[in-house]
């Protein structure tokens, strides 16, 4: 973990009455930098926030958006909850699997994409909703998959 990241985590810790409150934002800082939360990264976060590494790992493992295993350069979340299910997300997801050649939960061999089936993304008016990294894509059709993915190199 870089000194800049450590510094940022220390800044975050200052926003709260108790430093453990900064744990979730700190884990995002670390994940952003390292790609995923390896044991060494978790150790560093624990050290900066002076928390037991057991606790840090335990907390990280609870939340869906922390990656404790390596992931691709781009994370593709396809919402599969009801509103999107009623709008054909299954076909969309199948198409994604086909184009990427992987199952949800996996990463393409070239390390470019990881694919995940997501719970409601809070974008049901745009069903089926897709989140690629930080970009929300609305009403993606199976045909739209390839052009969309093309944007992420």
């Amino acid at each position: 973990m870089t000194e800049a990241a450590r510094e940022e985590i220390r800044r975050l810790a200052g926003l709260y009455e108790h430093r453990q409150s900064a744990l979730i934002p700190a884990l995002f800082v670390a994940q952003q930098e390292a790609g995923y939360l390896s044991p060494a990264v978790l150790e560093s976060v624990a050290e900066v926030l002076e928390l037991p590494v057991t606790e840090v790992t335990s907390v990280a493992s609870f939340y869906g958006l922390f990656y404790l295993e390596p992931v691709g350069r781009h994370m593709v979340h396809v919402c599969t909850n009801l509103s999107c299910m009623l709008n054909g997300c299954q076909r969309l997801l199948s198409r994604m699997q086909e184009v990427m050649g992987i199952q949800p939960g996996e990463t393409t061999p070239d390390g470019r994409f990881s694919l995940r089936a997501a719970e409601c993304l809070g974008a049901c008016e745009e069903a089926p909703a897709v989140l690629v990294d930080e970009d929300r894509w609305a009403a993606v059709s199976p045909e739209g998959v390839e052009p969309m993915l093309e944007r992420y190199r």
Binding site: N81, L82, E119, C120, C124
Partner: peptide
């Protein structure tokens, strides 16, 4: 947190 499915 707006997590209830269908809520946006």
């Amino acid at each position: 947190d707006e997590g209830e499915p269908g809520t946006f």
